[in-house]
Amino acid sequence: MTKEQLVDKIAAHTGATKKSTDAFLNSFLHVVKQQVKKGEKIALMNFGTFEQIEKPEREGYNPADRKHITIPAKKVVKFKVSKAFLD
């Protein structure tokens, strides 16, 4: 499903206009991104949790030449789905 299709479905379900639904969805995504970047955990009941985690530095290898390399530490976003969502 694309974002446009999601906006259409939400607008039909709520009776709101597509324009206001799109604006709300864009605002929601912007706020979630900003808060997760700040290190805040976003928990949405019956849906899931977004949080930023730090992956430690690790060893790897370049498959082209089989030389070992060090993969640097980095921050990634993790989403954990709620148990209620799966039921």
Rank of each mutant, 00 (worst) to 15 (best):
T2Q: 11
E4T: 15
Q5Y: 10
L6W: 13
L6H: 12
V7H: 08
V7T: 03
V7W: 01
K9W: 08
K9F: 08
K9M: 08
I10K: 15
A11W: 02
A11P: 13
H13T: 12
H13M: 15
H13V: 07
T14K: 14
T17H: 02
T17A: 04
K18D: 06
K19L: 03
D22L: 11
A23S: 07
L25M: 01
N26Y: 12
S27F: 01
S27Y: 04
F28Y: 09
F28A: 06
F28L: 15
L29F: 07
L29G: 10
H30F: 06
V31N: 07
K33R: 04
K33S: 14
K33Q: 11
K33C: 04
K33D: 15
Q35D: 10
V36K: 10
V36W: 00
V36S: 06
K38D: 12
K38P: 14
K38R: 09
G39W: 10
G39L: 10
K41C: 11
A43Q: 14
A43K: 15
L44G: 09
L44P: 12
M45Y: 13
M45C: 13
N46A: 15
N46L: 14
N46Y: 13
G48H: 02
T49H: 00
F50L: 05
F50A: 11
Q52E: 09
Q52G: 03
I53Q: 10
E54Q: 09
E54H: 10
K55D: 08
E57I: 05
Y61L: 15
Y61R: 15
A64G: 13
D65E: 02
D65F: 04
H68Q: 09
H68F: 15
H68T: 15
I69A: 04
I69V: 05
I69W: 03
T70M: 01
A73H: 05
V76H: 04
V77K: 03
V77A: 00
F79I: 10
V81S: 06
V81D: 07
S82L: 04
S82V: 02
K83Q: 03
A84W: 08
D87N: 12
D87F: 01
